[in-house]
Simulated scan of single mutants.
Amino acid sequence: MMNLFMDSVLIHMGSMYSALGKFEKSMHVYQRVIATLERKHGKGSAFLVSPLLGMAKILGSIGKATTAIEVYQRVISILESSRGAESKDLVVPLSGLGNLLIKEGRATDAESLFNRILSIYKESYGEYDGRFGMALCSVAHVKCATGNAEEAINLYRKALQVIKDADYMALDDSIMERMRIDLAELLHVVGRGNEGRELLEECLLITEKYKGKDHPSSVTHLINLATSYSQSKNYVEAERLLRTSLEIMMKSVRPDDSSITFPMLHLAVTLYRLNQDEEAEQLALEVLRIREKAFGKDSLPVGEALDCLVSIQTRLGKSEAELLELLKQVLKIQEKEFGYESEEVMRTLKKIVFYLDKTGRKDEKFSMQKRLSVLRMKYKQMMQY
């Protein structure tokens, strides 16, 4: 009995070290437990399942996918032998292995694993149980990863309906919310924006019902809806939603909190599209001020704000020399964050060449034009393969 208790304590320690990010210590503990259990009960013992799963999770986290896959497969084999091929205990290792395969770009291999989980839940609980609905959602996710968007959409819809009808979890549960948002994003990708917006509006209404109209958690839904309306070129509605999100945030965070710059920059872009350039410029400048203070002048968030500001100030007729300096700052940030040969750098180089030409700086323009030509050739060759 004491030995079993000690093994349990060690497994808990392994889990604790893993949660703290101390993977090396966690691995050492799991290896010790596994070696002990193998000596006592044999390599096919079900006692090995828990520490093996812990080890597989860590191996996946630290980039040792091949070894992690082998460990997951060993767990599955042990459980099949000891508890049968339809055991509910198989769900955890099957899911862990499936998610790892998706992460490794092997979604096709993962599909059979999630279909197997679906079969286990169907056999155990029936097709109207919330757990079956959750399994449907996992299959939808893998269908999406394999590029089968239409089937994924149908499965997501069915999953949401099963979970709702079964009253398996609250409508405002974060998992349900994530499923609706995932489905909405997928619908937008395939060009069914109206259906996607309906789901985003449902998310907003549920949040307002359970948490109140001015609750900060509604901001995400307001911004998602605004983005959807912007994609359909309904900038007036997008502006209204973004102003509402900004008002809510201003009540819950400090005026210079960096989180406020996300809806603020979105609003600046929307106002630019509505030709309200003066207000758009003021918002972009405020975003720039807050982000420089929060993240530093050479940070990617600052580069994003500068890029937006350049577009606005170009139409406002600001001096080409000033715009050129801003673009050079954007280029410096993008080179650091994305690399000297990134697409982002190529787009900014194109703008810089344009303004160098306008300002008559021919020598500088020649070197930048040469660099841009090399990048364009590189990407043209990549597109041919």
Rank of each mutant, 00 (worst) to 15 (best):
P255M: 12
Q329I: 01
A294N: 03
V9L: 14
I352W: 02
R273C: 04
F262M: 11
G191S: 11
H215I: 03
T359A: 00
L331A: 06
A184L: 06
M134Q: 09
V302N: 03
R180Q: 12
A68M: 10
H215G: 05
E80H: 11
L52E: 10
L375D: 03
A226M: 07
E127I: 07
E364A: 13
R291Q: 08
N115Q: 13
D277W: 15
A321L: 05
I175R: 11
G212T: 11
E38L: 07
K362Q: 11
F47P: 01
S18K: 15
A238W: 01
K22A: 09
D173H: 13
R32M: 13
H41Y: 15
R32N: 06
V29K: 08
A305G: 11
F295M: 00
V33G: 08
K358Y: 01
K209E: 14
A19W: 00
L372S: 00
L48P: 10
V162P: 02
S228I: 07
G63T: 08
Y340D: 13
A284N: 02
A280E: 13
I102N: 14
L356M: 01
S228W: 04
G317A: 10
R131V: 02
R180D: 07
M179G: 00
A35I: 09
L59E: 11
D256Q: 14
S138N: 15
S259C: 14
I102P: 02
Y272S: 15
K251P: 04
G126L: 04
L225E: 08
L100F: 05
A170M: 00
T270P: 05
D298G: 05
C203T: 15
Y30G: 11
L183A: 13
M16F: 11
I181Q: 08
E292N: 00
S228D: 05
E281C: 09
Y168L: 03
L187F: 08
L94C: 09
L199V: 04
F5Y: 03
R243G: 05
L113H: 07
Q161R: 12
S342F: 09
R131T: 07
I175W: 01
L326A: 10
I181S: 02
S373T: 12
M6F: 02
G212K: 08
S15P: 01
E195W: 09
R289Y: 04
E111H: 10
R157D: 08
E337R: 09
E341F: 12
S258G: 04
P216A: 09
K43G: 06
L160A: 00
M27C: 13
V71P: 07
K143D: 07
K25T: 03
D172N: 15
K370E: 14
D109W: 04
R197D: 15
Y125T: 04
V190P: 04
K25W: 00
M382I: 09
L349H: 01
S119C: 03
I58P: 03
L288G: 10
A284T: 03
L323H: 02
S217K: 06
L285V: 07
L59R: 12
Q313S: 06
L271Y: 03
F338I: 07
N115Y: 03
M55V: 05
S138Y: 07
P93Y: 12
G147F: 01
L10Q: 09
C137K: 14
N154T: 10
E343Y: 01
L265T: 12
K209C: 03
L246Y: 09
